[in-house]
Write a protein that binds this DNA or RNA. Sequence first.
DNA 1: TGGCGGTACTG
DNA 2: CAGTAC
DNA 3: GCCA
Length: 599
Amino acid sequence: MSTKDQSITSKTTNKADRHQEKLFLADVKAIIIEAGLGKTRSAILKKQLIVYGGQYHRSIQSDTTHIIASKNIKLARLCTILKIDTIPSNLIVVDADWLSQSLTKGQLIDVGQFNLVKRVQPKTTSVQLDKALTKDDNAATLEHGKKEQIKRHSDASPCTDNSDHNEVPPASQKRPLEEKKISSPVWLKIKRGRFSKTNTKKRAIDNSNIIHQPLDSDSDYVESDDDNNANTSEIEMVLSQLPAKYTAKPSSSWACARPSSLPVKNRNKHITDILEILQKKYENLGDQWRVKGYTKAISSIKNYPREITTREEAEAIPNIGKRLADKIWEIISCGHLRKLDYMDNDVQTALNVFTKIWGAGPATAHNWIAQGLYTLDDIRAKAKLNYHQSIGLKYYDDFNERIPRAEVVEIEAVIREEATAIEPGLEVITCGSYRREKPTCGDVDILISHPNGRSHQGAYHKLLRRLQAKDFLTEILVNQDVDIDHQKLLGVCKLPEEGRKYRRLDIIVVPYREWACSLLYFTGSGHFNRSMRLLARKKRMHLSEHAISVGVLRKVTACSVLKYGNQKLTRGTPVPTKCEADIFALLGLDYLEPKDRDC
DNA sequence: TGGCGGTACTG
DNA sequence: CAGTAC
DNA sequence: GCCA
């Protein structure tokens, strides 16, 4: 993980080397058994085998190395086709997926789990499940039952790719980049958003009209009796005034309406892996909308309980339309996407590296490449960087490293200590992926407020000064000081001990009336937030990091204007919320624990 | 065919 | 305003 | 990219 940039730091390679590397099937001399694979797929596999340096044999020859077959084929059938009694011991009988996935990766992958026969007895016996799965069982099995296939897929990951995080470098990553001029940056041609960004005139956040908690006169505490439904009566009151169609419970097609599935294993990793590469490509192109489409589709596939086997099946899955269904079908039938072959992997690799510099996005990355820069060393030496990017580059490795939960706890402790030294009652809570209970985090998101509704004021600046004074907060990237109630820091911190990494740290201070919405927002996930926002909108509400409002009319049509309290509105009326559960309730959703919002 | 979040920073 | 990030 |  830490050495991802080294791979492209030197750049001297010629065409011959490159072609050489592409012939990764040179040692594969194989027979492809059409039965069970289908004409199309076996034809494509054959072609690809040859393209990448392998040899295709029509029958067993002295130097044949592999027999490539469907994992469903029976041993007896195989022997019949090959006109033999037993499989010669020098031949490896391998699931066609092995070849497919190798093609996808651009390199040979371990044959282990794809091995269909391990020193086989010529007899076709249907073996017991547990026996078949035993590692060193020789009587292994061409009699794959469905159960076995499932097992096979569920533990497929370790071999194909043992990094769950987005480490998957493009197959060519280790290859140095070549100089190459880009004619006209493709991404420039992407048409920009058609709408003229509804002119948001510098409008300070005004929640002034938020209907506050009773916040009784001057007594400090609106005691939050720690349970989760202190506010329910009020929420129910609001709900009771809404039309029934807005209070109905949303179907589980909403990502925010179902717990993110821990139990569901991705049975279509072979598909999502490829789609994720494509998605990356569009990300690098700056095509945010297509990326969003892919995001939803990939997420749907990952939650799909079975292996997808037909085009129709794919298209029936939500968020998968005709075009993705076609791609999926190509992946299923040939094991890989031709579209990927046309991608310029050098450029893609450089883009992936560059956009991981904090502060650099697709546009900047393309500019650099257009200037002939391809490696981080190039950037260090020649690129013009703004302040953000220079910090991003300086801490490139650290920032791209995940943070273990234990360290997040340490960082949080430092901040809490300083915060409570300033103002004892301050609430300090770490949100983001930490709160969603992920094992590692990309950054540390800390939300701060004060239950009395006002003592958060001023704490922010004192806190920053303290953290800087002890050299904990080392860089300030963005210091967003909106008004007396809202501050946000995007910065960099490092724990004091020697050898600690520099970590991205976000600190957000909000007034307590916004606690619930902020907590919800900064806990995410992003996808979950989007889903919830969309749902809110559908229900004529509006959800933001500041508040949730009811009675929002987007286009001012003359239809019934909802009322709450005594205010008429077009922008909606913010509903006071005390905890996240209130927001779920308003939207008619069952409450989800943070860990279940990881979609 | 248009919408897919809204906002605030940097340069 | 474009680009980036949350 | 998908969907209404």
